[in-house]
Simulated assay, not measured.
Amino acid sequence: MYNPIKTIKTNTLGTINMLGLAKRVKAKMLLASTSEVYGDPEQHPQTENYWGNVNPIGPRACYDEAKRVAESMCYAYKKQEALEVRVASIFNTFGPRMYMNDGRVVSNFILQCLQNKSVTIYGDGQQTRSFQYVTDLVEGLIQLMNSNYSLPVNLGNPEEHSIEEFATIIKKLSGSSSKIVHLKAMEDDPRKRKPDIERARLILNWFPKVELTDGLISTIDYFRNELSRNDNQWSMKQRMTY
């Protein structure tokens, strides 16, 4: 279950502890930030120079603002302590070995399809997201750490899909008979999410290489094997995050 207090503590106290450690041992600090720092964006696609549109008291605020605070702390340490920092703004990522019941849209859709349960979409399903495969993200993080660039860098796949379209793709690839159903929209659910990755291309020579369908097939196969191995004992969380 999502715990907002634990979330903000983990992201703020955890980051400041790691910054203190990096300062003491003279290490380079990598912050795994998130596209959630852009909130419900008024700029599309989102560039790293965009300051975001976040509701500071909304239901998503503890996660969104904690990541924004973490970024602020990184750059405060960079300016005051000359600490080397690298900040990756990570967009939706998926792949094998995800927690199967973590409440994320990819794992929820795949589990629902494989179990022939209703595929639940919050709202009209026209909100968009961009999904990258985990190996592309790992390559981007390695290249960012090996670079001399200290400003935030978007790491994500600029191929944009609506949530409804994404559910349909997973249903087809999994061979599911599930029905797609719409539930009440979630408060402050961003309507658009798509990274501008020009900075990553220019600075890191990085861009995603794995096609969405190829990555989904591998992930679906992993989930199917896990379900079989665990005798279908996985339970679904009621909350879904996009």
Rank of each mutant, 00 (worst) to 15 (best):
E165G: 14
P96C: 03
P195F: 00
Y242V: 07
S89P: 06
K179C: 11
R129P: 15
T219P: 14
D231N: 15
S107F: 01
D189E: 14
K184S: 14
L83P: 04
V105P: 09
D196H: 08
D64A: 14
I169D: 10
S150A: 13
D196G: 06
A88C: 07
I16A: 03
I217T: 15
Y50Q: 07
N232R: 07
L216D: 04
P56C: 03
Q43T: 01
Q46C: 15
V138P: 12
L13D: 14
T213S: 12
E164T: 03
L216G: 10
M18P: 11
A200C: 12
V106F: 08
N230G: 05
T7K: 02
V119E: 08
A88N: 02
S147Q: 03
D188T: 10
S147D: 03
H161A: 05
I203R: 04
N11C: 05
Y222T: 03
S162P: 11
K67D: 09
H182K: 14
I197Q: 06
T93H: 02
W206G: 10
F91Y: 14
D136K: 02
R199P: 13
R68W: 06
G39N: 04
P190R: 01
L13N: 11
S176P: 15
P208G: 05
L19G: 08
F91A: 10
N101E: 06
T47Y: 00
Y149W: 09
K79C: 13
K9G: 13
I16G: 05
L141K: 05
S177E: 12
M29S: 13
L31D: 09
S150V: 06
Q80M: 10
T10S: 15
P152M: 02
L212K: 04
V85G: 10
I90H: 06
R239P: 09
T7D: 07
V87Y: 09
E42M: 07
Q46V: 09
S107E: 10
L173V: 02
N232A: 04
D64N: 13
Y133R: 00
P158T: 00
V134A: 09
N17V: 01
I180H: 04
S162F: 00
F223R: 03
Y50K: 03
N17Y: 07
E65L: 15
K117L: 07
V85P: 13
R97K: 13
N148W: 00
V153L: 03
V69W: 00
S178L: 04
L30Q: 01
W206E: 03
N225I: 02
T128N: 11
K184N: 12
F207P: 11
D124Y: 04
E211D: 14
P96R: 01
I57S: 15
N108A: 13
G95A: 05
P96I: 00
E71C: 08
H182I: 09
L212I: 06
Y77H: 02
I8Y: 02
I197V: 08
G140W: 00
E211Q: 11
M73Q: 09
V134H: 06
A200S: 15
S177C: 07
P152S: 01
S235Y: 01
N55P: 11
D214R: 03
G103D: 07
I110G: 08
V25C: 08
E42H: 12
A27T: 02
F91M: 04
E160K: 04
T128F: 07
L202T: 09
K117C: 12
N101H: 11
L30M: 04
E84F: 01
S72Y: 09
M100P: 14
F207V: 10
M236T: 07
Y75N: 06
E159Y: 01
H182L: 12
Q143Y: 00
R229G: 15
